[in-house]
Computed example of a mutant assay.
Amino acid sequence: MLPKSLQSHLQEIGITIQNSQPISGGDINHAALLDCVDQRQFFVKFNNTKVASEMLSTEAKGLQVLQAAQAIRIPKIITQGQTPDGIAFLLLEYIQSGSRRSTFWQQFGASLAALHRNTSPQFGLDHSNFIGSLPQSNQWRDTWALFYAEERLLPQMQLARTAKLLDSNDEKRLHSLCQQLHSICPTEAPSLIHGDLWSGNFLCDARGGPVLIDPAVAYAHREMDLAMSRLFGGFDAVFYRAYDEAWPLEPGFEQRMEIYQLYYLLVHVNLFGRSYVPAVRSVLQQF
């Protein structure tokens, strides 16, 4: 149920709610579809945890970064803030879902390549953000190897070690892998990536086209998005062909894909526990 304080706060800024319907799917925030008396509809996510305000404000920033790229549809931000009693919220346009048109995957793949064409002189971002509920540092780094090691892999390993989910041998193997990154990953300009590209983080709108949601953006290696999309079953083959036609990957991606997936597996260890430890160790033992 929508908290009364949030409903009152929204009414103060001109959004009078007639009805609210809970929306499932997220495991971090509460979410609802809002039907307003003026027939408008909005999507709201909200929470009252200690980090909720920072999480939702950086999510809004990430959506704005993706919108500015003008490569793929992104939900419009209506407002973001916090009620007097500490409920943080993010109000977005409500995107009505529809059936995928025949060109959905082709459009999606080409659009992702267009997003990745947005580049930066350095790897990182002008602010840190979150992946899931975990902090994600984005300090600017001059090389991908340094950024991936210092801003992605090693912080997640430290979290897992502190929680006693991984051991010193795992940490040693990771340090060894980090020393090899410069020779394994292709040298490319930092690309704007979604950062958490799995099947739960895109929609199909009423026109049958793709929409990206819930980003963890940064200027990083574009192969991160492709690797994450393959971690849990992958997207339609047409998506990958369309991406490759728009901007081919360097040869050998299949052999290095698991290196990029390692970050997301470490995140899953820290979010969901030991069931992901064997997958992490499998990657570390290979490299």
Rank of each mutant, 00 (worst) to 15 (best):
H9Q: 15
L10M: 01
I13R: 15
I15W: 00
I15H: 04
I17A: 06
N19M: 04
Q21A: 05
I23D: 01
I28S: 09
A31H: 03
A32S: 13
L33C: 13
C36K: 14
C36Q: 14
D38W: 09
D38F: 02
Q39I: 04
Q39G: 00
Q39S: 15
R40E: 12
R40A: 15
F42Q: 01
F43R: 10
K45T: 06
K45H: 02
K45F: 01
K50N: 08
M55P: 06
T58Q: 07
K61I: 11
Q67I: 08
A68C: 02
A68Y: 02
Q70N: 14
I72W: 00
I72Y: 03
I74E: 04
K76F: 00
I77H: 00
T83S: 02
T83Y: 02
P84L: 07
D85K: 07
D85T: 06
F89V: 07
L91E: 09
T103F: 02
Q106S: 09
Q106E: 15
F108E: 14
S111L: 08
A114L: 13
L115G: 05
H116L: 06
R117P: 04
R117N: 13
N118R: 11
T119A: 03
L125G: 01
D126C: 07
H127Q: 10
S128P: 08
S128I: 09
S128R: 10
I131C: 13
S133P: 07
L134W: 02
P135N: 08
S137R: 13
Q139Y: 01
T143N: 06
A145C: 10
L153H: 07
P155G: 02
L159R: 14
L159S: 05
R161Q: 15
T162N: 11
T162L: 10
K164L: 08
L177G: 06
Q179D: 15
I184F: 12
T187W: 00
E188L: 11
H194W: 06
S199P: 02
S199H: 12
S199L: 03
D205K: 05
D205I: 12
V211Y: 02
P215H: 04
V217W: 08
H221C: 07
R222G: 04
E223G: 03
A227P: 05
A227Q: 12
M228N: 04
L231A: 09
L231N: 05
A237I: 12
V238E: 11
F239V: 11
Y240W: 04
E245K: 14
L249S: 14
F253K: 10
E254H: 13
E254T: 13
Q255H: 08
R256S: 03
R256C: 01
E258L: 13
I259W: 00
Y260P: 06
Q261W: 09
L262C: 10
Y263W: 02
Y263E: 05
Y263C: 10
L266W: 04
H268M: 00
V269W: 04
G273R: 11
V277G: 00
A279E: 11
R281N: 14
L284W: 04
Q286E: 11
